[in-house]
């Protein structure tokens, strides 16, 4: 039995390419299998805050936020968001930037660490991304984080207590420090077996090939 290929993924929630990249990576894993790859693929998500200075509450739309934040005309922002929406649709995602609630993701990352400790990280990562990009949920609010975590099987009181105590503050900081140590400045970023790096929302065949190369490298080393 081949040992699992370990894939460490640095990503943020407020990151449109991270969700698109997640889908493409998952497609890549399927292609790796279809091509005869027999190693299990073990995924661990790591925290990355793209914009730590983002306010928890912003009174306006995503277009308003970006137009104000970047000094761009609203029409240009709308055009860009439509392009991202179209690319997301190509991988089966239904982004709704009109409903999106732009917010700080620091506390959501803490809950993802709690979920990891309880074996529910993959489910919660998917739930958070869907809630943020498709459902317009406010992921800066504890009540929303608790409700979404409960949907994937986490005890609401456990989540509430962890947030109240900032129990996973150090875990988030450690992930961000690790990213810095690795030289990661953009996300999503995929590290396979601590040897191979894949940056960005690459096409599925890139991920499939990377997994094949990582598996072959193990053979070379044995």
């Amino acid at each position: 039995m081949t040992a699992p290929l370990k894939v460490d993924i640095w990503s943020d929630i407020a990151c449109p390419w991270c969700y698109i990249g997640k889908r493409r990576f998952e497609d890549g894993v399927e292609r790796y299998r279809a091509n005869g790859g027999d190693a299990a693929v073990e995924v661990e998500y790591h925290s990355f805050e793209l914009a730590p200075d983002t306010p928890v509450d912003f009174d306006g739309s995503e277009v308003d936020f970006l137009a104000e934040h970047k000094g761009m005309p609203a029409a240009a922002v709308k055009g860009m968001l439509q392009q991202v929406t179209d690319i997301a649709a190509s991988v089966g995602l239904h982004y709704d930037f009109d409903a999106l609630r732009h917010t700080k993701t620091y506390r959501a990352h803490q809950v993802l660490h709690l979920a990891k400790a309880h074996g529910r990280q993959a489910e919660l990562k998917e739930r958070f991304l869907k809630a943020y990009f498709e459902e317009g949920r406010h992921l800066g609010r504890d009540s929303e984080l608790i409700a979404l975590a409960a949907e994937v099987g986490l005890d609401p009181e456990l989540v509430r207590a962890a947030l109240a105590e900032d129990a996973h503050r150090d875990d988030v900081a450690a992930d961000i420090a690790q990213a810095r140590a690795y030289g990661i400045s953009g996300v999503p970023f995929f590290v396979i077996d601590e040897k191979f790096g894949v940056s960005g929302a690459q096409e599925p065949q890139v991920f499939a090939a990377a997994l094949e190369q990582a598996a072959a490298a193990r053979g070379d080393a044995s």
Binding site: C15, L50, Y182, F196, G200
Partner: peptide, 28 residues
């Protein structure tokens, strides 16, 4: 947790398109 010299080579063999879409800072 150490700071990394960003001019140093990546510790990984980078695969795929180096210009693939990604988010960096507060820009995507």
């Amino acid at each position: 947790t150490a700071e990394r010299d960003e001019t140093a080579p990546s510790p990984f063999t980078l695969l795929g398109d180096p210009d693939a879409v990604a988010c960096d800072g507060d820009s995507c």
